[in-house]
Structure formats: structure tokens, C-alpha cells
Design a protein around this nucleic acid. Sequence first.
RNA 1: GUCCCCGUAGCUCAGGUGGAUAGAGCGUUGGAUUCCUAAUCCAAAGGCCACAGGUUCGAAUCCUGUCGGGGACACCA
Length: 600
Amino acid sequence: MHWSFVPPSLCANGACEMTDMTTLYAAYAGTIQTALQALVADGTLPEGTSFANVTLEPPRDPSHGDLATNAAMVLAKPAKTNPRALAEAIATKLKSDPTIVSAEIAGPGFLNLRLDPSAWLGELETITKLGDEYGRSSMGAGTTVNVEYVSANPTGPMHMGHCRGAVVGDALASLLELAGHEVTREYYINDAGGQVDTLARSAHLRYREALGENIGEIPEGYYPGAYLIPIGEYLAQEVGEKYRDAPEEEWLPYFRAEAVEKMMDLIKSDLALLGIHHDVFASEAALHAAGKPDEAEKWLREHDLVYDGVLEAPKGKAPPEDWEPVELPLFRSTKFGDDQDRPIKKSDGKWTYFGADLAYHMQKAADADELIDIWGADHAGTVKRIKAAVAALSEGKGKPTPFDVKLVQMVQLMRGGEPVKMSKRSGNFITIADMVEEVGKDVVRFTMLTRKPEAQMEFDFAKVVEASKDNPVWYVQYAHARIQSTIRKAADEEGVTPSTDALNQLGSDEIALIRRAAQFPREVESAAKAREPHRIAFYLYDLATDLNSFYSLGNTEPEKRFILKHDKGLTAARLFLASAIGQVLRNGLRVLGVEAVDRM
RNA sequence: GUCCCCGUAGCUCAGGUGGAUAGAGCGUUGGAUUCCUAAUCCAAAGGCCACAGGUUCGAAUCCUGUCGGGGACACCA
């Protein structure tokens, strides 16, 4: 795990400066950096040595100490010495810090540090003082990130297929915010293609139905879902019989605009059920109206990145029967690693989806420093071309715009071990509203975040509501509720509240728990760097495990309970510990968008 | 045929930007309850990290290939 050598003075956001508090890992990272700089000053390390690969982490085996650094192994080469000799030099410098009680060299050159217990106890005060801000990093300060997620076609309510990407995107956005980035949560509305025309026609059908016509079975090529019935009724109310028998070109634009708007209302309310709210809803139609694709094409042609050419027939499988060579404006995506150049316009002269998407990303890249798209795995085939597009567009800017596409794999819905059958044809699919109603928002969100997004997962309705250790969301919430309950009970029955007065009475069991809590800021930074919010979910599970283990010590050793009737000082100190752990659980759950409950 | 993702305990999965003895839950076996929330805890057993090469002080992690699972492959979005 890496950590960034960001000195506290670089802490750009107000919270850091106001409180003037540094978390434990950041502080000792600074200590080590100072020691390394001293070695540069006295010539042990060459001028300009990069410390980028130096890590500070908990040793795998706690008996090795409190902290471990690989500095000597990483820097032995530039120092032209062997790791153990360099470690010796680093250790000498570090020992001038009174809170470092020992610095031992181990294995191939690890430097294991032992801290005075007061260092760990101090972290409890840091957690408490920083409160909701504990874990906030300045790592991303000054970098704006645009996260585009969901972007479901506005042709119906949200169903299961959208759920995972929605949750992952939202948690990622929150994570990046906590890591200090300024984040825009964006939704791209595909309101310009053939699908929304189909939507408009389907709405027209329902409109005629609302006017009393018997429309019978919904024909092939129309959306059959019952959710369009209220749209038809609404339209009938708005325009009466005006468009009942009118030719399509008269009503299509109006029906399309109305239907899309209603569908977006539906989608927004579905997203709200999951606690998801976007900052920007970007319309593809508006993009066209503003002439953005033309601008993009012009720019690309000037840079010889778009040319008129003929695509080859698809290889490997039999080409479609109606395949014929056509000259189209093609984007040179092969120049950036794609297998084939991609058309930006269709043979009828209209823009392809890609042509518009290219212009859309051009616009996003102009507004943000970094871009992230969350897509379903079924769009994997288009990753290369859009990455190529962003690479091409940012060539002109002098420096490339970092751009990540996160692919989210399918979720297999199960019920008691059996796959849930869904029929798309009848429009009978499991919606997000169904899911949230059945198992709750917190369960849906947490479960979606307990697997890395690029791996396929199962979601079993039966398992996911089980109240057991096998169900992480319950387990983590239980730990938090347990803490809150203990604090309540101590106040009500013993009149004791958390206090630092007797903090130095806390022993090694408590410090083991603090050690885990102190990881949180590191987890935030590494998860943000990797763009992997699921790491926070796993961390919270580990922290909950440690809390529950500690709590259970009191079952066999009553003197290890939080609440001790005979020792109010120690009770208050343990409550202070409990309260700090609760704070970290809350801060982590907030990233995931899961509620930290006080009672269960 | 090409491209993308995945392959870790019996099962479901972490760990993967190279570091010390590969982790957790479920399941199995054996324990803990005059209990601050047992929706919990402790312990045992269980592994050629798919396979084969390569890179280096060091590989589950990086590279190449093979096998297996999933997905995508004209002007659909």
C-alpha cells in the first residue's frame, strides 16, 4: 500500500488547517520523510532521490511492531549500499523521535517501528476532534473529477441491470470527494437515437388507448411496459384527440420530448430510492442542437483524425446479409489502439451514437481535469474507441486528460439458490423499486459493494436479508448499534460519558482496535487512488470484526467490559474508544451511502 | 476469428500499482452465555493462488502462451 508524502502544510481544505491535526500515518510518513531528507543532506542518499515507492504500513504480523517501512529496500540501490546497512542509518535518524521506542531491521530490510502507546491513544483524540472529517484527505485537492454513471436509456424504469453501476458510481464519487477531489456526478441522457423514437411511438399507442381505443397486444418493436399507460393518459389529457390520427411527423417530436421527460422523472425517483442524486443531466439532443458534434468533427478533421473511408466487412463470423461497403466519415481510433476505425456518422448522414459521445466527452474534458465513466460490461467493446477519442481530443490540449472506464459486470439475481427468471419481451423485469422495497436500500448498496465491480456476482434475495455474519451490512451495522447502545447504557445507568481523563489506562487490547481504526485514512487514499470503493466496504467489515472481538473479551473477562461499575475513569476511557470507533464506522458507511443505525 | 473481464480453501469471495508465514465468511469439527446487544466470540481442519514458461534479490500480484467460465464484435444505443 502506498501513502503519499503530503506534508500537512499542503493540506488545502479548510478542515485540516482549522483543526491543525494530522492523522497518525500521515504524521509518521512525515517523520520518515524528514529522516530520509537528513540522509540526503549528509550524503548517504544522492540528491534528488525519489521517495515515491516508499511505503509505511502495518506489519503483517503484529508481533513485528506497530509500523513497517520498506524505505531501505527501495532506496538501497540509489544509495549504492545494501538494504540492511541503509536501514541502520534510517533507524538511527528515527530514534531521535521520542515516540518511536524501537526501530528494528527485519527480513530482507524491513524497518519495524514500535511506538509509544501514547501515539495510538492520541489517534483516538484525533478521530474525535476531526469527527465526520476523519479520513478526509487533501490528496485530490485541486483536481476536479467528472464521474458519469447510470446513464440508462430514458425508455423505462430502472431495472436490476442498472443497479450495480449506479451504486458503484455513486460510492466512487463520494470516495473521491472524501479524498479531496471536487466531483461532478453526471448522467448522460440518450434522448436522440432510435430508441426514444420507439418510446414516442409506444407512448402514442398508449395515448390512443387512453382515448378509448382498443389497441390489443402491443406489437413487436414497441415498448410493452405498463409504465407507459400513465404517460398515454397524461398526453390524452394534454392534447385531447389532436394527434390521434395525425401523421407521425406531426406528433413525434412532441411525444418524444414529453415521454423522455416523464421517463427521466421516473428514473430520478428510482435513483432517489437508492440515495443517488446527480449534479448534471447532460442531454444528447441538446448536444446536437448546440452543434457540438460538428465542432468535434471539424477539429478532428483539421488534425487528420477523421477521414472519409470504407469499412471492411466484419471478420470471423458471417457478415450481416445486407452488408455493403459504404463510405463514411471515420475516426482514426486505430491510431490509439482500437482494432478498427469507427464511423461518426451513418450513411443517412445522421450522427452515430459514437459521434455524439465523442463530442460529449470532448465537452466533459473541457470542464473537468479527470474523467471516469461507469459502464455495464456489455459495452466493453466500445471502451477502446472512446478512450481513443479522449486521447485524441486531449492531444491538442498539450496534456492528456486522465480517463478511466470502469466496467461493471452483470448481476445474477437469485432467490434461495435458484436463478430468478425475467422475461424482457413481456416487460416483466425486476426493477430497482422492487428490490429496494423487498430488501432495503442499505442492503442493496452494501451488497453491490462487497465484490469488486469487474467480477460477476450473484445477488440472492434470500441470503441478503439474513441477519448473520455472512451478511456484511448487518454485521457492520450491528457493530455500530452495539457501540451506540453501550454508550447510551453507560450514560443512563452509570452516568458516565466518554472522556480522555484516564485514557492512559487503556491497554494492548484497546490499542489493537485503535490500530485498525487508524488505517481508515490510508484506506480512503488507496481506495480513491485505485478507484475502488469496495475496499471501504471490506475495511468496515474488518473494523466491525475487531470491535466485536474486543467486545466479546468482556464475556469471559468481565474486567475487559466497556462498562465497569467499580471504575468510572476506565469506563469513560473505554467509552471514548467506543465512540471513536463508531465515528470511523459512520464515516466509512457515509462513503458507501449506507445508514449507520443506532439501534437494531 | 478478434477484443475485454474473470480463474485464489468444498462453496461465495478479499488480497493484485512486486515484499516477511496467502486471508475472511459459509460449511465441517470442538468450545464460550449467572452476558455491557450471542444478530456475537474463540479454536481446529481445509491451498501446486487454473497450467507452462519469462522478468528479479523476491511473483498470487508484472510479461508471453495454453486451458476453462462470462461478455462484446458493421452506419444499435
